[in-house]
Simulated assay, not measured.
Amino acid sequence: MDRIIVSDVSKTFQLKAGQRVTIDGRPSDHVTVLDGIDLAIRQGEFVTLVGPSGSGKSVLLDIIGGLSQPSDGVVRLDGNVIVKPDPKTGYVFQQYALFPWRTALANIEYALEVRRVAKAERTERARHFLALFGLSDFADRYPNQLSGGMQQRVAIARALATEPQVLLMDEPFAALDAQTRDTLQSELLKIWEKINTTVVFVTHSIDEAIYLADRIVVMTARPGRVKQIIDVDLPRPRDGDIRASDAFNAYRAEVWEALRDEVDKAQRESGLAAFAH
């Protein structure tokens, strides 16, 4: 069953008065970031989006989340056109976005407060998700008393505490060190396998994309289009050892082959834009 359907979605941004960019050798006062995106994401599926910088991955995520509207096309969630953020959807950003004046427990409770969940229930659910991420002993700590990895655990726990049917994640582990990143990837998969939430995950890491995903959506350089969709047929549950397997290495080569020309194109255009500026 398809949970999310993206139909012919494009997104163009109008630049501020007097601003220009060079596109295909010509100056322009607007930028098309996404162009004709078609994508169907199934219930309970884990999909990762990869592509060069500027390919519109985060913009597409914002449109799916109702935080931005497409210039053309529509996105449907369970058959309904998305025009604003939906309570069924949770969002985790690269920045931790925690309230510094709230403890870890209270940060998670906040997502339930705005949904008017009773105090006793929201505290119970918040403690449950703290425990899932191994943070029970840090419930009363404030964000500045937690490491970066712990803060992101709290941010993910806050999103999951609302029991979202869709979880959108925009490079949530990008700012973390490699060991913490690997640990959180594994913890995320363990929880996802229990709750059957549909996940759309943006990343620049090919290894991360492969390790997490059922399918990898490879996007072109700007304007972003779907270049290739790669099914990841690796056994679940997955552990870190799978990264050393021949199958994993084969997927790494396949994804890079799809990305190589797009990365080169994005770098060339970035250099031209800098030169023109």
Rank of each mutant, 00 (worst) to 15 (best):
D177R: 10
D214Q: 13
G224W: 01
A221Q: 07
K190L: 14
H204Q: 13
T203L: 10
V217I: 13
I206A: 00
I191Q: 00
I191Y: 08
D177H: 10
R181M: 10
I230K: 00
A209L: 07
I229N: 09
T198C: 11
I216K: 04
V199I: 14
Q228M: 12
S186R: 15
E171T: 07
P235Q: 12
V226G: 05
A209K: 02
E208A: 09
R181F: 03
W192K: 10
D214M: 07
T203A: 06
P235E: 10
G224L: 03
K190C: 09
P235D: 10
F173Q: 00
D207Y: 00
E208W: 10
V199M: 11
F201D: 04
K190V: 09
W192P: 03
R222H: 08
W192S: 05
S205L: 03
T183P: 01
A178M: 13
R215Y: 05
E187V: 00
L176T: 02
E187K: 14
V200C: 01
N196D: 15
L184N: 04
A175C: 06
D177M: 08
V226D: 06
I210V: 13
D233M: 12
D182C: 13
I206K: 00
D170F: 12
T203K: 10
I216C: 07
M219F: 10
D177E: 11
V199T: 07
R215G: 04
L188T: 05
R215N: 08
T203F: 00
I229K: 12
A209I: 08
D207C: 09
V200S: 01
H204V: 04
D214F: 02
I230R: 08
D170C: 10
L234E: 01
K194M: 15
Y211Q: 03
D182W: 15
L184E: 08
D231G: 15
S205Y: 07
Q179Y: 09
